[in-house]
Design a protein around this nucleic acid. Structure first.
Length: 448
RNA sequence: GACCCUAUGGUCUAGCGGUUAGGACACCACCCUUUCACGGUGGUAGCCCGGGUUCGAUUCCCGGUAGGGUCGCCA
């Protein structure tokens, strides 16, 4: 029998980065085994759920490229789903839960208590055979000792997580429950419920949690906890996916940057680690740089133009050839797309601002005659392309008896306002003679 | 408080009784480049502590410590 796995988030606000990884591991396992990946929305808490949160989850999974074989087609809970075990929103499955509760009630495995229905939990320790953690014998805690039973139907008639989760896993034919380790203790209850329904529980694989860089747990307050944060920062989904794969799972062969196909091939439950992992932004950033450098041209242009637009810079006002030439000088030189407007905005802005500290250092009186000489050399250059300009600058430096750097820095500052950026000679060529001469003139004027 | 999980450089990890403890990120130095990156070379840095078992423990067992999780009419 092919595995059937599911990701079952509750739409209470955002897609947690840990949840994204849980989804990823489930998806990888399904793809590795040729099984089925199911998305089920656990929206039983009407007070905390929202339509927006459902969309955040759906869009987040799509952004990551985690397509589901069964689940919602849209964020509309009452809308059609994909697959024959739906609906895939728990809010639409009330009758199932009601029927199951009645079955337990009639068999004396549950009872009413203050308007709610409680399940008669076993008093014996429950053994959980976990595919990741191993055999866990879960005993009752002292508080459970005094009252081991738990509510499965609230006094207002709404079913509770433990019940809905188990009923749906059962009815949707889930074979492997791959979820966060925070559910390990709950699993005893779930196993007891499966037994009450006279079925064998699915296989369990509890994966370790993702912690903050300082080892504390990630809460909603931490900006890095939300997947949306990475989308907005300008990360590439393939970098995030690759990084997430490496958190709590290892291919065991020292591979770090892995193509998705390779990861699918290698992924399996036994290689999942048992201990929590800290989220390392630096390593994610490294992978981001790796993927950013090898981005296809079309996708690179598209993402770049979009990023400029978000920053209020309309690149469509410029000829396509100019935009592409400008972007070509930037590719592979920055990591996060969020950096791009600051890195290459000078191509599309007339009023550039000089880096204050650099201006103090480079726009000094003794540099004025030097920059004037450079302007003249550029003015009479036979061609305005990178090799010619480089030769002109170096020749000028030689005549002045200074190192090339003495001209390079003020020149870069004059035309870009920055101390770093694309290759100077190439950016001059792209910018064009008119703008370059204008900007050098302007810089000269500030140096009096 | 009880119950459960975990423990290799700063971080992610390989290791499954005998290794000069390997890789990656980060960091440092040098090279390349007279920007910034990229790339290259070299380097600093690790088996939580204490008991066992064993000829021999990073590795197996027990205890401690530390971190994390759970004990809701949240999921």
């Amino acid at each position: 029998m092919k595995p059937r796995v599911r990701f079952a988030p509750s739409p209470t606000g955002y897609l947690h980065i840990g949840g994204a990884r849980t989804a990823l591991f489930n998806w990888l396992y399904a793809r590795h085994t040729g099984g089925t990946f199911i998305l089920r929305i656990e929206d039983t808490d009407a007070a905390r759920n929202s339509q927006e949160a459902v969309d955040v989850i759906l869009n987040g999974l799509r952004w990551l490229g985690l397509d589901w074989d069964e689940g919602p087609l849209t964020g509309d809970a009452t809308g059609a789903g994909k697959g024959d075990r739906g609906p895939y929103f728990q809010s639409q499955r009330k009758e199932n839960y009601q029927r199951r509760v009645e079955a337990l009630l009639s068999r004396d495995l549950a009872y009413e208590h203050e308007g709610a229905v409680k399940f008669k939990m076993t008093r014996e320790p429950v053994t959980i055979r976990d595919l990741v953690v191993g055999e866990v014998v879960r005993k009752l805690t002292d508080r459970e000792e005094s009252d081991p039973d738990f509510v499965i139907l609230r006094s207002d008639g709404q079913p509770v997580f433990h019940l809905t989760n188990v009923v749906d896993d059962l009815e949707m034919g889930i074979t492997h429950v791959i979820r966060g380790e925070d559910h390990l203790s709950n699993t005893a209850r779930h196993i007891a419920l499966f037994r009450a329904f006279d079925v064998h529980p699915p296989h369990y694989a509890h994966i370790p949690l993702i912690l903050n860089a300082d080892g504390t747990k990630m809460s909603k307050r931490d900006t890095g906890a939300s997947l949306t944060n990475y989308v907005e920062e300008g990360f590439l989904p393939e970098a995030v996916v690759n990084y997430l794969c490496l958190l709590g799972w290892s291919p065991k062969n020292n591979r770090e940057k892995m193509a998705l196909a390779e990861t699918i091939e290698a992924f399996d439950l036994p290689q999942i680690l048992r201990h929590n992992a800290r989220f390392d932004q630096e390593k994610l950033l490294w992978l981001q740089g790796e993927y950013a450098r090898e981005l296809g041209d079309d996708r690179f242009y598209e993402l770049a133009v979009h990023t400029f637009a978000k920053a209020g810079i309309d690149t469509n006002k410029f000829p396509l050839s100019y935009v592409k030439a400008a972007l070509d000088t930037c590719k592979g030189k920055f990591k996060l797309f969020r950096e791009l407007p600051g890195y290459a905005g000078f191509y599309f802005i007339d009023q550039i601002e000089y880096d204050a500290e650099a201006a103090k250092k480079d726009f000094v009186p003794e540099n004025k005659p030097r920059l004037e000489k450079l302007r003249e050399a550029f003015a009479v250059a036979p061609k305005f392309d990178a090799p010619t300009l480089e030769a002109a600058l170096k020749e000028t430096a030689k005549v002045l008896g200074v190192k090339a750097g003495v001209l390079v820095h003020p020149c870069r500052l004059a035309v870009t306002g920055k101390t770093s950026g694309p290759s100077l000679y190439h950016l001059l060529e792209v910018l064009g003679k008119e703008k370059v001469m204008q900007r050098i003139e302007l810089a000269l004027a500030t140096m009096s």
